[in-house]
Protein backbone atom coordinates (compact mmCIF):
# COMPACT_ATOMS: atom_id res chain seq x y z
CA UNK A 1 0.00 0.00 0.00
CA UNK A 2 1.34 3.43 -0.90
CA UNK A 3 1.73 6.30 1.52
CA UNK A 4 -1.00 8.37 -0.10
CA UNK A 5 -3.55 5.56 0.04
CA UNK A 6 -2.80 5.05 3.76
CA UNK A 7 -3.39 8.77 4.28
CA UNK A 8 -6.62 8.57 2.36
CA UNK A 9 -7.89 5.66 4.43
CA UNK A 10 -7.01 7.45 7.67
CA UNK A 11 -8.99 10.52 6.56
CA UNK A 12 -11.94 8.38 5.47
CA UNK A 13 -11.83 6.51 8.76
CA UNK A 14 -11.98 9.77 10.67
CA UNK A 15 -15.02 10.87 8.61
CA UNK A 16 -16.70 7.53 9.29
CA UNK A 17 -16.19 8.02 13.04
CA UNK A 18 -17.70 11.48 12.70
CA UNK A 19 -20.71 9.92 10.99
CA UNK A 20 -21.31 6.99 13.24
CA UNK A 21 -20.22 8.13 16.66
CA UNK A 22 -23.16 10.53 17.26
CA UNK A 23 -25.58 7.92 15.92
CA UNK A 24 -24.10 5.29 18.21
CA UNK A 25 -24.51 7.69 21.15
CA UNK A 26 -28.14 8.25 20.16
CA UNK A 27 -28.80 4.51 20.10
CA UNK A 28 -27.01 4.07 23.44
CA UNK A 29 -28.94 6.89 25.08
CA UNK A 30 -32.23 5.50 23.90
CA UNK A 31 -31.42 2.49 26.10
CA UNK A 32 -30.19 4.58 29.01
CA UNK A 33 -31.91 5.70 32.21
CA UNK A 34 -31.04 9.39 31.67
CA UNK A 35 -30.82 11.51 28.56
CA UNK A 36 -27.10 12.18 29.01
CA UNK A 37 -23.97 10.15 29.53
CA UNK A 38 -22.67 8.46 31.67
CA UNK A 39 -24.62 5.25 31.29
CA UNK A 40 -26.93 4.50 34.14
CA UNK A 41 -28.98 1.33 34.59
CA UNK A 42 -28.02 0.36 31.00
CA UNK A 43 -29.72 -1.18 29.05
CA UNK A 44 -33.29 -0.33 29.79
CA UNK A 45 -36.37 -0.24 27.59
CA UNK A 46 -37.83 2.50 29.79
CA UNK A 47 -38.13 5.14 27.05
CA UNK A 48 -39.51 2.70 24.52
CA UNK A 49 -42.25 1.76 26.98
CA UNK A 50 -42.78 5.44 27.77
CA UNK A 51 -43.15 6.08 24.04
CA UNK A 52 -46.14 3.73 23.90
CA UNK A 53 -47.97 6.16 26.19
CA UNK A 54 -47.86 8.88 23.54
CA UNK A 55 -50.67 8.16 21.04
CA UNK A 56 -49.49 11.08 18.86
CA UNK A 57 -46.07 9.43 18.46
CA UNK A 58 -47.59 6.06 17.63
CA UNK A 59 -49.94 7.69 15.15
CA UNK A 60 -47.03 9.51 13.55
CA UNK A 61 -45.27 6.20 12.95
CA UNK A 62 -48.50 4.77 11.52
CA UNK A 63 -48.88 7.77 9.20
CA UNK A 64 -45.27 7.43 8.11
CA UNK A 65 -45.76 3.76 7.30
CA UNK A 66 -48.86 4.60 5.31
CA UNK A 67 -47.30 7.50 3.40
CA UNK A 68 -44.16 5.49 2.64
CA UNK A 69 -46.17 2.46 1.46
CA UNK A 70 -48.45 4.38 -0.88
CA UNK A 71 -45.51 6.44 -2.15
CA UNK A 72 -43.51 3.29 -2.80
CA UNK A 73 -46.33 1.61 -4.72
CA UNK A 74 -46.95 4.62 -6.93
CA UNK A 75 -43.27 5.46 -7.48
CA UNK A 76 -42.50 1.86 -8.48
CA UNK A 77 -45.35 1.74 -10.99
CA UNK A 78 -44.24 5.06 -12.48
CA UNK A 79 -40.65 3.81 -12.41
CA UNK A 80 -41.52 0.63 -14.31
CA UNK A 81 -43.44 2.54 -17.00
CA UNK A 82 -40.89 5.34 -17.22
CA UNK A 83 -37.92 2.97 -17.12
CA UNK A 84 -39.38 0.81 -19.88
CA UNK A 85 -40.12 3.83 -22.03
CA UNK A 86 -36.67 5.34 -21.55
CA UNK A 87 -34.85 2.06 -22.13
CA UNK A 88 -36.84 0.83 -25.11
CA UNK A 89 -37.93 3.87 -27.09
CA UNK A 90 -36.22 6.76 -28.74
CA UNK A 91 -38.00 10.02 -29.16
CA UNK A 92 -37.08 13.61 -29.94
CA UNK A 93 -36.02 15.42 -26.78
CA UNK A 94 -35.37 12.23 -24.82
CA UNK A 95 -32.25 13.69 -23.19
CA UNK A 96 -34.06 16.86 -22.08
CA UNK A 97 -36.97 14.78 -20.83
CA UNK A 98 -34.63 12.54 -18.83
CA UNK A 99 -32.87 15.59 -17.43
CA UNK A 100 -36.15 17.13 -16.26
CA UNK A 101 -37.24 13.83 -14.79
CA UNK A 102 -34.10 13.68 -12.68
CA UNK A 103 -34.30 17.33 -11.57
CA UNK A 104 -35.90 16.60 -8.17
CA UNK A 105 -32.74 14.68 -7.25
CA UNK A 106 -30.73 17.91 -7.26
CA UNK A 107 -33.45 20.30 -6.11
CA UNK A 108 -33.32 20.96 -2.33
CA UNK A 109 -36.42 19.39 -0.80
CA UNK A 110 -37.02 22.51 1.27
CA UNK A 111 -37.46 24.50 -1.95
CA UNK A 112 -39.64 21.81 -3.51
CA UNK A 113 -41.73 21.58 -0.34
CA UNK A 114 -42.17 25.34 -0.04
CA UNK A 115 -43.08 25.91 -3.70
CA UNK A 116 -45.36 22.87 -3.83
CA UNK A 117 -47.15 24.06 -0.68
CA UNK A 118 -47.64 27.59 -2.06
CA UNK A 119 -48.90 26.20 -5.36
CA UNK A 120 -51.34 23.77 -3.76
CA UNK A 121 -52.64 26.41 -1.32
CA UNK A 122 -53.35 28.72 -4.29
CA UNK A 123 -55.20 25.86 -5.93
CA UNK A 124 -57.26 25.52 -2.79
CA UNK A 125 -55.69 22.25 -1.64
CA UNK A 126 -54.88 22.14 2.06
CA UNK A 127 -51.89 20.30 3.52
CA UNK A 128 -52.70 16.68 4.42
CA UNK A 129 -51.25 13.18 4.28
CA UNK A 130 -52.35 12.91 0.65
CA UNK A 131 -50.39 16.04 -0.18
CA UNK A 132 -47.32 14.57 1.52
CA UNK A 133 -47.78 11.43 -0.56
CA UNK A 134 -47.94 13.50 -3.76
CA UNK A 135 -44.77 15.32 -2.74
CA UNK A 136 -42.99 12.08 -1.90
CA UNK A 137 -44.03 10.47 -5.18
CA UNK A 138 -42.49 13.45 -6.99
CA UNK A 139 -39.14 13.09 -5.21
CA UNK A 140 -38.92 9.29 -5.42
CA UNK A 141 -39.86 8.84 -9.11
CA UNK A 142 -36.38 9.89 -10.31
CA UNK A 143 -34.79 7.17 -8.19
CA UNK A 144 -37.18 4.37 -9.14
CA UNK A 145 -37.03 5.37 -12.82
CA UNK A 146 -33.24 5.48 -12.79
CA UNK A 147 -32.88 2.07 -11.10
CA UNK A 148 -35.43 0.44 -13.43
CA UNK A 149 -34.15 2.06 -16.63
CA UNK A 150 -30.76 0.48 -16.07
CA UNK A 151 -32.44 -2.87 -15.34
CA UNK A 152 -34.41 -2.70 -18.58
CA UNK A 153 -31.30 -1.74 -20.52
CA UNK A 154 -29.41 -4.70 -19.03
CA UNK A 155 -32.24 -7.08 -19.93
CA UNK A 156 -31.50 -8.94 -23.17
CA UNK A 157 -34.25 -7.88 -25.56
CA UNK A 158 -34.12 -11.24 -27.32
CA UNK A 159 -35.67 -12.81 -24.18
CA UNK A 160 -38.80 -10.74 -24.79
CA UNK A 161 -38.67 -11.53 -28.49
CA UNK A 162 -38.34 -15.22 -27.68
CA UNK A 163 -41.54 -15.07 -25.60
CA UNK A 164 -43.37 -13.37 -28.45
CA UNK A 165 -41.97 -15.85 -30.92
CA UNK A 166 -43.38 -18.63 -28.74
CA UNK A 167 -46.85 -17.13 -28.99
CA UNK A 168 -47.03 -14.67 -26.07
CA UNK A 169 -48.70 -11.32 -26.74
CA UNK A 170 -47.20 -8.08 -25.41
CA UNK A 171 -48.96 -8.27 -22.03
CA UNK A 172 -48.19 -11.96 -21.42
CA UNK A 173 -44.57 -11.34 -22.40
CA UNK A 174 -44.34 -8.54 -19.86
CA UNK A 175 -46.00 -10.57 -17.11
CA UNK A 176 -44.18 -13.86 -17.68
CA UNK A 177 -40.75 -12.76 -18.82
CA UNK A 178 -39.98 -9.05 -18.42
CA UNK A 179 -41.41 -8.49 -14.94
CA UNK A 180 -39.92 -11.61 -13.28
CA UNK A 181 -36.51 -10.75 -14.74
CA UNK A 182 -36.51 -7.15 -13.50
CA UNK A 183 -37.95 -8.14 -10.11
CA UNK A 184 -34.67 -7.57 -8.22
CA UNK A 185 -34.62 -4.06 -9.69
CA UNK A 186 -38.22 -3.53 -8.66
CA UNK A 187 -37.36 -4.58 -5.11
CA UNK A 188 -34.36 -2.25 -4.95
CA UNK A 189 -36.40 0.64 -6.36
CA UNK A 190 -39.19 -0.02 -3.86
CA UNK A 191 -36.84 -0.07 -0.86
CA UNK A 192 -35.12 3.10 -2.07
CA UNK A 193 -38.45 4.91 -2.45
CA UNK A 194 -39.63 3.64 0.92
CA UNK A 195 -36.50 4.84 2.74
CA UNK A 196 -36.62 8.28 1.09
CA UNK A 197 -40.26 8.76 2.06
CA UNK A 198 -39.75 7.23 5.52
CA UNK A 199 -36.91 9.59 6.38
CA UNK A 200 -38.06 12.80 4.72
CA UNK A 201 -38.67 15.81 6.93
CA UNK A 202 -37.72 18.78 4.73
CA UNK A 203 -40.57 18.26 2.28
CA UNK A 204 -43.12 16.82 4.68
CA UNK A 205 -42.75 19.66 7.17
CA UNK A 206 -44.35 21.99 4.59
CA UNK A 207 -46.97 19.57 3.35
CA UNK A 208 -48.16 18.08 6.64
CA UNK A 209 -51.52 19.10 8.00
CA UNK A 210 -52.70 17.97 11.41
CA UNK A 211 -51.50 14.44 10.79
CA UNK A 212 -47.72 14.44 11.07
CA UNK A 213 -45.33 11.78 9.84
CA UNK A 214 -42.78 10.48 12.35
CA UNK A 215 -39.82 12.65 11.29
CA UNK A 216 -42.05 15.75 11.26
CA UNK A 217 -43.38 14.83 14.70
CA UNK A 218 -39.84 14.46 16.07
CA UNK A 219 -38.76 17.71 14.47
CA UNK A 220 -41.69 19.72 15.82
CA UNK A 221 -41.38 18.28 19.34
CA UNK A 222 -37.64 18.99 19.39
CA UNK A 223 -38.34 22.61 18.50
CA UNK A 224 -40.98 23.00 21.19
CA UNK A 225 -40.27 20.69 24.08
CA UNK A 226 -36.67 19.71 24.78
CA UNK A 227 -37.76 17.67 27.82
CA UNK A 228 -39.15 14.99 25.51
CA UNK A 229 -35.65 14.25 24.26
CA UNK A 230 -35.30 10.77 25.79
CA UNK A 231 -38.54 9.59 24.17
CA UNK A 232 -37.41 11.11 20.91
CA UNK A 233 -34.13 9.23 21.03
CA UNK A 234 -36.13 6.03 21.33
CA UNK A 235 -38.35 7.03 18.42
CA UNK A 236 -35.39 8.12 16.29
CA UNK A 237 -33.68 4.83 17.03
CA UNK A 238 -36.73 2.93 15.78
CA UNK A 239 -36.89 4.96 12.57
CA UNK A 240 -33.16 4.64 12.00
CA UNK A 241 -33.02 0.88 12.67
CA UNK A 242 -35.89 0.30 10.29
CA UNK A 243 -34.18 2.31 7.52
CA UNK A 244 -30.83 0.55 8.11
CA UNK A 245 -32.61 -2.81 7.98
CA UNK A 246 -34.15 -1.89 4.63
CA UNK A 247 -30.85 -0.64 3.26
CA UNK A 248 -29.23 -3.91 4.29
CA UNK A 249 -32.01 -5.85 2.55
CA UNK A 250 -31.44 -3.76 -0.58
CA UNK A 251 -27.74 -4.63 -0.62
CA UNK A 252 -28.62 -8.32 -0.20
CA UNK A 253 -31.00 -8.21 -3.18
CA UNK A 254 -28.40 -6.41 -5.29
CA UNK A 255 -25.77 -9.00 -4.41
CA UNK A 256 -27.97 -12.00 -5.04
CA UNK A 257 -29.25 -10.68 -8.37
CA UNK A 258 -25.82 -9.58 -9.61
Amino acid sequence: MTKSSIMFIVVLGFLLILTFFPIAILLLLSLNETSTLPLRNFPTLKWYIELLRFPAAINAVKYSLMVASVTTGAAVIFGICGGYALARTNFAGKKIFTGLLLMPMVTPYIIMGFSLMSFLLKMGVNPSLIVIIIGHILITIPYTTLVLTSRFIALDISLEEAAMDLGAGKFTTFRKVTLPLIMPGVAVAAILAFIISWEDVALAVFLAGTEQTAPVYIYSLLMKLPKFVPILTAMSSIILSFAIGLAFLMRMIERISA
Binding site: S158, L159, E161, D165, G169, V177
Partner: peptide
Protein backbone atom coordinates in the same frame (compact mmCIF):
# COMPACT_ATOMS: atom_id res chain seq x y z
CA UNK B 1 -44.60 -12.61 -34.52
CA UNK B 2 -46.75 -14.39 -31.92
CA UNK B 3 -49.27 -15.47 -34.53
CA UNK B 4 -46.85 -16.77 -37.17
CA UNK B 5 -46.34 -20.49 -37.77
CA UNK B 6 -42.59 -19.98 -37.31
CA UNK B 7 -40.26 -20.42 -34.37
CA UNK B 8 -36.86 -18.87 -34.04
CA UNK B 9 -33.75 -20.21 -32.34
CA UNK B 10 -31.98 -17.03 -31.31
CA UNK B 11 -28.27 -16.41 -31.72
CA UNK B 12 -28.06 -15.73 -27.98
CA UNK B 13 -30.43 -18.72 -27.49
CA UNK B 14 -32.56 -16.49 -25.20
CA UNK B 15 -33.48 -19.26 -22.79
CA UNK B 16 -35.50 -17.83 -19.89
CA UNK B 17 -33.09 -17.78 -16.95
Amino acid sequence: PFKRPTNLVFQSLALFP
